[in-house]
Design a protein around this nucleic acid. Structure first.
Lengths: 230, 230
DNA sequence: CTAAGCAATAAGTATGACTTTTTGCTTATC
DNA sequence: GATAAGCAAAAAGTCATACTTATTGCTTAG
């Protein structure tokens, strides 16, 4: 990531803390970091500042850099999400899948209210594309359309916080596919729901858009939790 | 906040960017910041690192510190939420209220599944306290119980991301109360719903817990949106 | 008119000195 | 002996300066 020295060191330290290598309450010291990574004071301090911004640590005078308890970490930070996926993929995916379940139906309802014509057109086109690629058995193209479909709904919701979760949804979708649990043809019911959602958003039908999306994510959550057992 | 120099400068710069004083695409320069705030290079750089971690800016060699487009900002960062509340309270409250609407029902369902005995007991006690304080017309005590009630459900959901949103919910609840739109006695239907939610979670009834919470937050969202007009 | 090379620029890194706050210990007082 | 005042060490925080690296726009050669 952040090409320079800062990025490299941050990546290592961040993953270690996320993985629990440094237990909450334990302390790091700037000088210690300088020696360990062979870096200057400035880089060490900037890394610590970044970790502090993610609320993984807090610096205290005369004490050191203290690792904060997990429940205080900023779990929504994309960087931390990545580190946690690396540390304990199952647990993090479960958390993210549940979050998605909560957000996407409401986002769909909001999109039905507020989506612009441009968004609606692309949404309908994507749902048609999903039908076609599904029939053809082109799983890669189907996945790309699926990802774009959900990204678009989150964006069209007009809620910046919803929109930002598109990376989370993409991670979930691609993980499920990459995990090979997907049949050669996507489930017909899922394809139909996508079409219904697009149509409801086009028609401005909040209630049914939300309901259809709830069906969809409920099924997806179930599938994800099953996949996590194996 | 971060008592030192770093904290002060960060607060000012962050609020400026959040408020749009520095348009996306515009560039700041480290040296410029040193002069403006009378700070050393290290402090200026550490402030920039923190802003970069919130994804408000990105540093480019031979260019400067570039303000990123709004949609790339990390809107879930508590610090940024605070800055946005200061910059455009209405817009941010609307966004947060919608997020709450999405999350709390699913959190309630999860809590019905996973809440520990300790949590359940406190939840029931709090719902009873809300009945009592409501009858007595003790709005302050009612609000405290209300805040704690929702915090507890988010925590009991067992989902770290849900749990972290308790600050958001608290902000929404207190804003609505502080805005004086609350009648002398809280709405009886709201009080009843709190009791029902507590009872459903105790009984492990996911479906009804989620439904009751959905009723509750729907009403709250409506009230909040009305309040935002005035 | 394109491509190669060059120089200026600003972030990034390194180093060392100095300041401030906290904390644990020591000592004086009741 | 318990409590409070004062002292000293430790580590983060701040400052100033010098040096490195990558990028970009311009200039020049083919």
């Amino acid at each position: 990531m952040g090409g320079g020295l800062h990025g490299k060191v941050l990546e290592v330290l961040g993953q270690e803390i996320a993985a629990g290598t440094h237990a909450p309450g334990s302390v790091l010291r700037i000088e210690q970091l300088e020696e360990r990574f062979g870096i200057s004071r400035s880089v060490a301090r900037e890394v610590v500042r970044t970790l502090a911004s993610i609320r993984l640590v807090v610096g205290r005078k005369r004490v050191g850099i203290v690792v904060r308890p997990r429940e205080e970490w900023n779990s929504f930070d994309p960087v931390l999400i990545r580190w946690r996926l690396a540390a304990d993929r199952s647990a993090e995916l479960k958390t993210l899948a549940e979050l998605r379940t909560a957000v996407e139906p409401v986002a769909a309802a909001a999109a039905a209210d507020r989506a612009e014509d441009d968004h609606v057109a692309r949404l309908v086109a994507l749902s048609e594309r999903m039908v076609a690629t599904s029939r053809a058995g082109d799983l890669d193209a189907f996945m790309d359309a699926d990802v774009e479909f959900h990204r678009l709904i989150l964006t069209a919701s007009g809620n910046e916080m919803f929109a930002q979760l598109h990376e989370v949804v993409e991670e979930l979708l691609r993980w499920r596919a990459g995990h090979g649990l997907m049949p050669v043809h996507p489930r017909p019911v899922a394809v139909r729901l996508h079409c219904e959602i697009a149509e409801c958003i086009r028609a401005g039908d909040k209630v049914r858009a939300e309901w259809a999306m709830r069906e969809l994510v409920a099924e997806a959550l179930e599938g994800t939790l099953e996949g996590l057992d194996s």
